[in-house]
């Protein structure tokens, strides 16, 4: 009954919204240092900027590897413990057969899996992590390193790639992201 009343009175289409509202702001917290977990914030952050959304990225714990000058080009993915990684990744017609965990522990397997994944990304013209960070920072994203993690790992501002604005505390991060949507990775 109530539905019918609503339908009858709704004359303005629901998609008519005012465009000049407060700009949307998305903040990503990157806490992982593996290849598969490095990309989500980079891809979504770039998409957000492309949609006129403000972006802040906070790197903490292993996520610091993503902005560490000496590590950013050596981010890897390990087959060990990763049930989603199948033999077919290597171009074998093996369906859902996983890479045997025992094979994953062999020396060189992590480097091999990493190479396979990076080759696939290169073939699709996906930027490297270093390049993505540059693009994000050029496009106006704010990149910050977490103070506690930085202290814990004995790092300094000069250890980070260009574009990382500052080392900030968790409290600073909360202040900077008031009203933002937060994505933890």
């Amino acid at each position: 009954m109530e539905t019918a009343t609503v339908t009858a009175t709704a004359t303005t289409p629901a998609f008519v919204v005012t465009p000049e509202e407060k700009p949307r702001h998305i903040a990503f917290i990157c806490s992982k240092g593996t290849l598969d977990m490095a990309y989500p914030a980079l891809v979504m952050g770039w998409a957000a900027l492309g949609n006129g959304i403000d972006v802040t990225i906070f790197f903490t714990f292993w996520g610091l590897d993503m902005i560490n000058k000496n590590r950013v080009d050596h981010i890897e993915i390990a087959p060990v413990g990763n049930t989603a990684m199948k033999m077919s990744m290597m171009g074998l017609d093996t369906g859902n057969l996983g890479i045997p965990q025992i094979a994953g522990v062999l020396p060189g397997m992590t480097a091999f899996a990493t190479k396979l994944m990076k080759d696939k990304m290169r073939a699709l013209d996906v930027p490297t992590v270093r390049e993505y960070l540059q693009m994000l920072s050029d496009a106006g994203a704010k990149l910050y390193a977490c103070k506690m993690s930085v202290d814990m790992m004995g790092l300094k501002q000069e250890d980070f790639v260009e574009g990382v604005e500052a080392i900030v505390t968790a409290g600073d991060f909360m202040d900077m992201t008031a009203g933002a949507q937060i994505v933890f990775i």
Partner: peptide, 16 residues
């Protein structure tokens, strides 16, 4: 054109 220039020329979502 650089990313920076694109965001300066066409702010808030340059490609779109």
């Amino acid at each position: 054109v650089t990313t920076k220039e694109m965001f300066a020329l066409f702010p808030k979502g340059p490609a779109k």
